[in-house]
Amino acid sequence: MADTEDDNSALASFFPDPPLFWKAFTPSNLQAYAEIKQQYASQHGIPVEDVVRVPDLPADSDLIYLQPPAEPKDGTWRLYGEPQSLEESLQPLESAGIERLGPPLPGSTTTSTSNTQTTTTDSQSTTQPTTDDTQPTSAFPSQQPTSQLPLPPSSTSAPGGASSGASSTQTHDTLHLHLKRLSKSLLLNFLELLGIMSLDPAAGSQKAADLRTLFLNFHHVLNEYRPHQAREQLIQLMQERLDQTRAETAANRAVAEKARRVLEGLGSVEIPAVDDVNIAGTGTGGGDGEAGYGSAAVPVPVPVGARTGTTVGDRRVGVDGEGAEEEEKMYWEREGMGWGVLDAEFA
């Protein structure tokens, strides 16, 4: 009864209903699934967050709806009518029906056995008139053969996987030359195309097809080079990071060294005074030996009260270094002489 109602509403409503399995998301099911997940994680020794999918759930329970479906077994599926593959690999030029110009890149194991065959198909396709308007749209015809002939995953994974799996020791030094040749050929072929079109427009399609092949080859070579370039970029990034880290270390050390030198300088001057102050309290005690000048009519070496002690303290913090110490000494001498004169007068 409920099912038929659902069907009716699905037919009648404008927007489609949510998938039927939304009813499986009950609190008890969620709870049960979380427990199963936890159990699975502890069995395999991996954190729970990393468990994407628990295999072997009972198929008749609603719990299978609580997790994403399994990967397609053969590695391919269709999306909007286009076949998709789990193995993202570069399709070799030959299988797309394009003639390969020049040697294959090191690392790619594409064989040129089908070369003769592809050239014939290529020349067949060029019998159709190619105007410059259709050129940009026909520049990437590789999608067409792919959609018609989905390759089995084993064969598509071979060329792409070979370059990443078995590391080659060959270098890419011929790539420069090859690419430069291709780009020069592009210009030359365009010139030839213009020349042909000015004389015999009907014969131009062959040249346009040549240009197309050249462009496709160029792009293909660049795409084959991509993994290499990615590794190269990784190396660059790591090098930059390394330099950065080293610079930071050096800067930190320099600052620490500077601060330590300042501390040592301060320590030779200040630290005894600091200790005295700490013992004597914050300037209120009159017992410190060095503070002592001012209004009290007592000769200098005799300690005086706290009122002047703070001013002495302020003055002392303001100056630093050995020069300050000497200045201090001279100050005391002058002061002492002044008081000495006073004493003499009074006496």
Binding site: S167, H176, K180, Y225, R231
Partner: peptide, 13 residues
């Protein structure tokens, strides 16, 4: 083309 990086390095390098 001439400034493409790492043309002299092989994959093992």
């Amino acid at each position: 083309i001439s400034s493409l990086p790492g043309l002299d390095n092989s994959e093992q390098d």
